[in-house]
Computed example of a mutant assay.
Amino acid sequence: MRVACHTITWGGVLGAPTGVTSIKDLHYLSHGSITEAVREIGAVGYEGAEVFDGNLAAIADDPQPFLDTLAASGVELVSVYSGANFVYADVLPDEMARLRRACVLARRFGASRLVVGGGARRAAGTPDEDYDRLGAALDQVADLAEEHGLEASYHPHLSTIVESPDELDRIMARTRIGFCPDTAHLAAGGGDPAALIRRYPGRLAHVHLKDIDLATGAFLPLGQGDLDLEDVVRAVVESGYDSWLVVELDSTDGTPADAAALSHAYLTDLLSRVTS
């Protein structure tokens, strides 16, 4: 098992404002420097990093400084995270064009995985057909990733139509894309993350780990919240998955490096106990 960290903690998550009027340009991105993030991620002891597609798009014309930082820090770019609405037929071609661009960027910067979230909740409610639309779109994402030598996975996320365990079951039956459990989002959606991993062991393709205070909904460094992360890791091991675990934390009251170090120390100790 190898351990990576998402650069989201260095600046939080934003959306490109051009996306309000141009769907094809609606990227996720973190406000902070991903170059500085990678330096600190490597210094903490992580072997890998995950970034948003928008952060790579912002440096696409001058990629070498970031590539040099990855090499100097001993950090592998593991994965690129993106997302889309996926349920609106008229805008889906533009969303897929943007995801194709994300795949191109992922390969240019050396990543091997594409992670997507999404499935919009409509103002008027969610018709059952939206799960069919989302499933079909996610199959397109899987095909697109494969064309670029990437492995794709779907990340259930709060505010989308895949929050609860029942909603997860509905989409998993409609798509062949891999499963990326996010421990905090699954718990906030009313699920038991370990149980949901055990429900879909053969679909596990990527893992996001973060803790949560269930009373407040605040995301926290690993070991600081309410989740039984030992059971989560045991479920991952039982599935046969032996690859990247990505620590993710949207924001922190302290420094990003300190939060990353807390999670790294906790996870390193946990892995030594669970996998020994």
Rank of each mutant, 00 (worst) to 15 (best):
G12L: 10
L14F: 08
T18W: 02
V20I: 09
T21A: 14
D25L: 07
S30K: 09
H31I: 02
G32L: 10
G32K: 12
E36N: 09
E40H: 12
E40C: 05
G42M: 01
V44G: 07
G48D: 04
I59R: 14
A60S: 12
Q64Y: 04
T69P: 08
T69R: 06
T69G: 03
T69W: 02
S73R: 10
V78Q: 11
Y88Q: 12
V91Y: 03
L92S: 10
L92A: 11
A97W: 00
R98S: 10
R98C: 08
L99A: 09
R101T: 13
V104Q: 11
L105M: 08
R107D: 11
G118Q: 00
L138P: 13
A145E: 07
E151S: 12
H155G: 09
P156A: 06
H157L: 10
S159T: 14
I161A: 02
V162I: 10
E163M: 13
A173K: 05
R174G: 06
T175W: 00
I177G: 01
H185F: 07
L186Y: 03
A187H: 02
I197G: 03
P201Q: 07
K210E: 12
D213Q: 08
L214R: 15
A215F: 00
A215L: 12
A218K: 13
D226T: 01
L227Y: 00
E230Q: 12
R234F: 07
A235H: 09
V237Q: 14
V237R: 15
V237N: 13
E238L: 07
D250S: 05
G254N: 07
A257Y: 04
T275P: 06
